[in-house]
Design a protein around this nucleic acid. Structure first.
Lengths: 353, 353
DNA sequence: TGTGGCACTCATCCGGAAGGAGCGCTGACA
DNA sequence: TGTCAGCGCTCCTTCCGGATGAGTGCCACA
């Protein structure tokens, strides 16, 4: 694969790049005459034809039928985005426009919604944001409420503003007074610490000090662990799926159905995003590379976002493979940065206690 | 409008019904020869042509162009569903299949999801369920949690299993102890009563006994009213929107986009369903009758569902106007009944206190 | 190695002809 | 007055053939 990129000389690279740029902007197979003109090279169409024949042999371009022009293959796009793409820096106005959509006072949920919808609106494709992992945010408060025999509602307040409920099913029953005491104990010991510290501490105590504690405290630790231990909800925020209806190349009804269904189910979207969470910059998936049939003619552009220096999530867009990568890549990149810093600012000024 | 239905004689009714049935099953304009044969009447095509000319004059059918067959107009469909439709009773197996999807032990949310997806799967169209109003379910418990200066989290447990959170922004600040006392007071007075009783009682106390109470109790009542008074979350569960991509007659890209967007936004879907909540049986909206442009070629079939004899919500499907009403109507009807009784069973056996 | 030229291949775009479905109208008949 | 067969007409759809044009592959030549 990458061999072929090494073997390309300057002229071949120029022509491949020009061809793909032209195809991206017009959607038409591009012929030798037009390519020769567009490339700016001082060569004739016939020479371009020879080069194109070489590129076709290497699997970078292909012709839809005997005598149409050429279109890029998946491998061609791959090479293009990896080593030929020159991204346009987003303008100051664009950045400001995106930034203005992130209200520093908003809740996490609202910020994620904004990110997703701004991605979708600016790129005119579908936007998506992976929920941030909450490991490193502070636990403000924990409370328990008896719902019934052996059923307890655990309420976690994190960052002084976000509330998570979890219903716990227990082997034994506790009175509301017991629960209140346990909550007091946990709050006294743990409030203000980050969730993963809390969890680590609870687990350690369960192992180490099992014998030294009375039954009540032991139960409290156990309960706390159950409440905090549950993973963050596995979810993703999406927006603007319907933008995808506007693209000619996604006209296959059945494929389109599967694509939109994927946005409803969210599971596969989640899978794609999770593949992208490693790596610290923009990543691009082209067509079937992600291993999904219905993904033909689609590409994904993603970027991770960080809070406090740690990557906590990924966001990105899905659109037709024939998209303006030079425009989309920097938008995704800058949105990830701005979402990160919006979340960051918020983390620094929790407005409680 | 309904005048024309009165003026139709038996033969005209038979022919209109046969025409619409034929068009629904084939999607092709139907001509006089075929209609004469399909109707089972002992009349010639020429006679049928005369009748068709009459029906066209009354606006019940029309021809797409000079010499194609006829297709029903909106008014024709209207008359058809109002007075010509003979629904097929759903088979025992169908009923059982739907019923088996409602797990009596499931949460309300799960039941609504099941209803929505079963509607979508059985009808191969988009299913939707309006969230039930909770006015008549019992309040099990109310708790308050101080989040920060003047910000209080109210936790309502209803029916002993469902939990609702509401964040209240208050003018003055309360300590957690104050809040605890207020919750105790409210629980002692109100637990076990239905939400609307609770609300009515709180409002009454606020008006009538304002002077007799100490400040603490007054604050408690005020807080309780704020917590309970907020309307049920305005929402709707949808499923299977993508089924709509399969219909030829919904091929206009822009319309289709608006339709799917409506499912994402949910606001307009909500509006449509709310129009249908009055009336105690199946209702049908045809095409633009609902006043929405993008609704051309679409119809809605809805039915209200009841818990404990009171209508609490409405469910239904959206699909192409050319749908098999005789099959869809009873499915929607029976699903509404079954959802109602599933919710009912649950309400009778709250497993707490 | 690059270039111009030439023959060839396809897809696309009419225009017209043929076929067919279906309608309205008319006049005959009970 | 209602029913019906027949006729002429309209209009959609399909098919066919030719023209057009974009683009390729190959070859000969500088």
């Amino acid at each position: 694969m990458t061999d072929s990129s090494i073997q390309l000389d300057a002229r071949e690279r120029t022509l491949l790049r020009t061809l793909i740029e032209s195809y991206i902007s017009d959607g038409q197979p591009v012929g030798s005459r037009n390519l020769a003109r567009a490339s700016g090279l001082k060569v004739s169409a016939a020479t371009v034809r020879n080069v194109m024949a070489d590129l076709e042999e290497r699997g970078l371009i292909q012709s839809p039928h005997t005598s149409a022009g050429r279109v890029p293959t998946t491998a061609g796009y791959r090479l293009f985005v990896d080593s030929l793409l020159e991204v346009r820096k987003p303008s100051r106005e664009q950045i400001d426009a995106i930034e203005s959509r992130f209200d520093p006072g908003a809740s996490t949920q609202d910020l994620l919604d904004s990110a997703s919808s701004v991605l979708s609106q600016v790129t005119r494709m579908a936007g998506m944001v992976r929920l941030p992992r909450h490991r490193n945010v502070a636990l403000s408060q924990i409370e328990f409420l008896r719902l019934g025999e052996g059923r307890v509602l655990a309420i976690l307040v994190i960052d002084g503003r976000e509330v998570q409920n979890r219903v716990l099913e227990l082997d034994r029953d506790f009175s509301q007074d017991d629960l209140q005491r346990m909550a007091n104990y946990l709050n006294a010991h743990l409030a203000g610490k980050s969730l993963h510290t809390v969890r680590a501490e609870l687990l350690r105590e369960m192992r180490e000090v099992r014998d030294d504690l009375d039954a009540q405290m032991l139960a409290a630790i156990d309960l706390g662990e159950q409440a905090v231990g549950a993973e963050d909800p596995d979810d993703v925020v999406v927006a603007g799926q319907t933008q995808l209806l506007g693209y000619e190349e996604l006209s296959d009804r059945e494929r389109l159905r599967q694509l939109l269904e994927a946005f409803n189910e969210k599971r596969e979207i989640l899978g794609i995003l999770d593949q992208c969470i490693r790596g610290d910059r923009v990543q691009i998936f082209i067509g079937r590379e992600s291993g999904l049939d219905w993904f033909e003619n689609c590409s994904v552009v993603t970027a991770p976002y960080s809070v406090d220096g740690e990557v906590v999530g990924v966001l990105g867009v899905i659109g037709p493979t024939r998209m303006s990568y030079d425009r989309v890549v920097p938008i995704v990149d800058v949105t990830a940065r701005l979402l990160g810093s919006a979340l960051n600012v918020r983390g620094e000024s929790p407005d409680s206690q």
